[in-house]
Amino acid sequence: MNNSFINLVTLQIKEFYREPEVLFWSVLFPLALSAILGFAFSQQGVKESSVAIIENTFTPIHAGIARLQSQSFDSVSNRQITLLVAQPEQAFLKLKRGEVVMVVEPAANNNLIYHFDPANEEANLQYLLLEKKLHSPPAGASTVRAVSTPGSRYIDFLIPGMIAFGLMNSCIWGIGWNLIELRIKKLLRRMVATPMSKSEFLLAQFTTRLLITFFENILLVLLAYLVFDLQIQGSLLNVILLFLAGNIAFGGIAILIASRPERNQVGSGIINFVTLAMTILSGVFFSYTNFPEWAVKIIRYVPLTLLADGLRSVFNEAADFPQIALQVVLLLGYGIISFIIGLRVFKWY
């Protein structure tokens, strides 16, 4: 038997494992990135930071400072704060060099002057912590409870985003780049000169990618489950549905991107632009709600955001089909419309 569709799919998959670099960049790299980010942001160790206190005439007589020890530990923020007493010039030099996050200057009448960059969140945090310690305790008692149940940790936010991110990259680079390369090598031209069916050819591209992304993501989810105890709270069927819709969306976009370029640089330029723009905007690594409100309204409908948000809601909030229906439909819309436009302007030779 010598079937063209099977040949097109199996040859692409064979190429995938015959080129070890391809395997590394498309499978191991996203895994490693997830693991690194996961560890980096869910690290349990004590964070340390230092604050400089200026030694002047008020230092020894300041009521609050006298109570402070040179090192103190804050259990809620899990921080070890080190206080360094220093001369003014020394203290500000340390601030410039980043050795301390803030300089505290004692003043008359038990007053304090804090010197720090308000844009530095660590410094802001230290300011609040020190204010609490250095002045009399607040009226009522507050209790803090740490939240670390599955579904609300950073890793739970990250992994569905990584799946969406990986899917986008795999489809756009895998299909888009492959088509552009076939065109540059004039292999596309050679193939179209045979009775090969164009739709079968494109369908084979899509099918190959579906198989590969499926394999990639099984590994990613498995890693997240084993290392970070990731749980899928919603139905697996909905995950698969979003996964398919994502494949169609990015497959279609890939074909649109690849429809014209005839040179490597142009092709990689366009692909980089599209994937990088979506990666930055779509809040794969960090929430996109930090963007201005008007931008957030647009960002919500970027394909990568649709997929990441959809997957997150199923993974972490147990969303059921009606809640992800809009995302699925919009993703399918992106895919189908891009595919139709792409096919219409596609340069086969």
Partner: peptide, 25 residues
């Protein structure tokens, strides 16, 4: 064609089979 480059990591018989299958051979 002038300078067609077949995919590097395909074997000779795979190239022939692939193109053969386009002609249903």
């Amino acid at each position: 064609l002038q300078e067609t480059k077949f995919t590097d990591k395909m074997t000779v018989s795979e190239v022939l089979d692939l193109f053969g299958s386009f002609y249903k051979l």
